[in-house]
Every structure is written in structure tokens, then in C-alpha cells.
Simulated assay, not measured.
Amino acid sequence: MNSWDMVAIGATLLLGVPHGGLDGAVARRIGWPIGIAPWLGFHLVYIALAALVAGLWWLFPLTSLSVFLLISAFHFGASDIADSGSHWLPWAAHGGLVCIAIPCLQPSQVESIFAVLVGAENASILMFGITILFIPWIISFIGYFGYAYYRPQYRKPLITLLIFFGLAATLPPLISFALYFCLWHSQGHIRRLWNSLEQHERNRSISEAAIYTIAAWISVGVIFYYLQGSAATLLIQLTFIGLAALTLPHMLLVDYAHRKIQKKEALL
């Protein structure tokens, strides 16, 4: 990795990961009880799910990375169009940006990153599977233009997708991912959740998110200090395995439970 890749990894950890710091607020908004015991219970469940993902990655790296890419596509696609709708074609087009377009536009660089995460042989197998999906994704991407013409609410997210597609085609994968994750995905998630919170919940959530964020940074630093290996390898492993571990509980809250609450509120 060059210095710009290191900056991209740092930005992902420092600016992107903290958007999950509001998950406690999400849990309370969907009805998780308030109190010491429920608070401890929430964190134990959250940490247990994250630890389960990390353990499964250790045992089944190829399957774990494949599933992580799949659920990330679902999560990113839903988040990108959350302000516009939930139709399947825009969802598929947005969901494939990180998990299909970036690997296929920068295959050699992405395969080397995958090799760090799951080994060279598994990385080759995974890249072969992703390459097969590139043509169907391109078809959905092209179809999205016509779809946005007839549904104007999707024009703004389509323009954003075009911008990030251009960045993915011209920039190294870690940099284009960091730009997308920090500038689009994370800020959009924080803004939507923040607007849904009452004022008293906002005050509590600020300090809570700060504590979670600092705890995550300290954890990464401690693990990085004690593990052996090159700095570049460890940073890639910590970043993406850590993201995978946190994505499962985060998705269960944001894309399942919280979305169900929003649909019920919309019907009232």
C-alpha cells in the first residue's frame, strides 16, 4: 500500500466506522427498554454477534467474505436510495457499486486485497464469481437511467452513483471505497437517523456515539499492537474483518428492525 491507501484506511476507520455509534439510539427507537440491565444486554448481544462473525471468518474465510459482500450490497443499496424509495432496480444498481463495480474495474488491486483477507487461491475464486456478475450489474445500471427518467425521485441518487462510478474507474479501490463510505454512506445514515430522533435522545446519543467511537479506535489500536505482521496487512485485515463483524448487528438494527418501525409510522 502507498501513503494514499494508508490515508484511505485511516479515513474509513476514523470517519466511516463511527456512523455505527448511533446503533444504541436505533435500538431504543425500536423499543429496546431503558435501564442498566437492558443497556448491558444490548451490548452483550451486539458484541456476541460481532464476535460470531469474526470467529466464522477465521474458520470459513471465503464464505465469510462472500456473505459480507452480499449483505453489504443489500445494506449499501438500501441506504443509498433511502430518501427516494425502495424499488429493486435502483437498489440493485446502487448495491453493486462497491461489491461488483469496484472489483471489476480494478481487478488486480482488489484481488490483492482479497488475498490478504482470505488467501490467494480463495481471492481468485471470489474474483471469478464477481466478474460473472458484472454484465448483469451493468445492465441494471443502464436500465436505471430509464427508470430515473420516469421516476424523478431517483435522479439525484443516480447522479451520485455516476460520480462514484467514475471515481471507482479512475482511483485505486481503497481510495474510492473510502470516499464512498465516508462521504456518502456514513453521512447519509447519520443524517437520516439524527432527523428521526427527539431532542432529548439526540443529547444522549452524542455522548454515547463518542464513547463507542473512542472504544472502537482503542480496540483497533490494541489489536494492531499485539498482532504480528506487516502494518499494511494488519490494517487491511482489521479494517475489513472489523467492518464485517460490525455490519451484521448494524444491519439487523438499521435495515430490518428500524425499517419496520418506519413503515408502521408511515401508515399511521
Rank of each mutant, 00 (worst) to 15 (best):
G10I: 05
L13N: 09
L15F: 09
P18C: 05
G20F: 03
A25V: 03
R28T: 03
F42R: 03
H43G: 10
V45N: 04
A48G: 08
V53R: 00
G55N: 09
W58I: 06
S64Y: 08
A78V: 09
D83I: 04
S84K: 05
P90F: 13
G95R: 00
L97V: 06
P103H: 07
P107F: 02
F128N: 15
I130Y: 05
I130L: 04
I135G: 03
T160W: 08
L162F: 11
F165Y: 12
L167S: 07
A178W: 04
A178G: 00
C182V: 07
C182P: 07
W184C: 07
S186E: 02
G188N: 02
I190N: 01
W194V: 08
N195F: 00
S196L: 01
E198A: 15
I206D: 08
E208I: 03
W217D: 04
I218M: 13
V222L: 14
Y225W: 15
Y225R: 11
Y226G: 12
T233M: 09
I236C: 01
L238W: 05
T239K: 03
I241Q: 13
A244L: 13
A244T: 07
L246G: 14
A257G: 03
H258L: 13
K260I: 13
K263Q: 13
A266L: 12
